[in-house]
Amino acid sequence: MLIKTIFSGFGGQGVLSMGYNLSRAGMLEGKMTTYLPSYGAEVRGGTANCTVAISDEEIASPVASSPEFIIVMNQPSFIRFQNLLQSGGVFLVNSSLVNIETTRGDIEVVEVPATQLAEELGNTKVANMVMLGAFVKKSNLISIKTLIEGIKETLGKTKPALVDINKKALNTGYNLF
C-alpha cells in the first residue's frame, strides 16, 4: 500500500500543519511516511501545499505526480490541482470557500464545509482540522485516535490552550459521514 495526498490552500489556512500531523500520525502507527512541503519564494497569503506519502514499505519518491487524495482549502488550489488527481481518486473540497464544480467525471468529490463548521465551533482557524478529520474518515489511512494523541503531543508543548478546540474540530470533521 502506498497512498499519496496533497494538501493545498492559502498560506495561513494551516495547510502544512494538516500534512505534518497526518505524516506524524503515520509515523506513530509505525508506517513509512514522508512529508514534503512546497518551498522557495513563498508569499504571505499566497498558496501553500504539501505532499504526504504513507506506506507499508519504503517510499521511493515523496513527490506525488498522481495522488490518491487531494485536499483543497481554497479556489485557486481547486483550479491548480483538480487535474493532477488520479482517476478514481478522492477530491476533498472546502465547500465554504470553493464554489465551482469539477469538470472531471472520474473522481469522487467530497464537499466539506470546513470553514463554516470551524466558525460554528468558534474559531475559523481550525477549519484545517475539520477537514483533516473528514479526510481521516474518508481515507481510513490512520486512526483518529492516533491523530488526536499526536496533536496533543505537539500542540501541548507550544499552545496547550488550543488542544481542545483542535480535538473538537477533528471530531466534527470525522463525524460528518
Partner: peptide, 10 residues
C-alpha cells in the same frame, strides 16, 4: 539535495 533537505521522514 534540496529534496532530502526539505522532506521530513521518521
Amino acid at each position: 539535495d534540496g529534496m532530502l533537505g526539505q522532506m521530513m521522514e521518521p
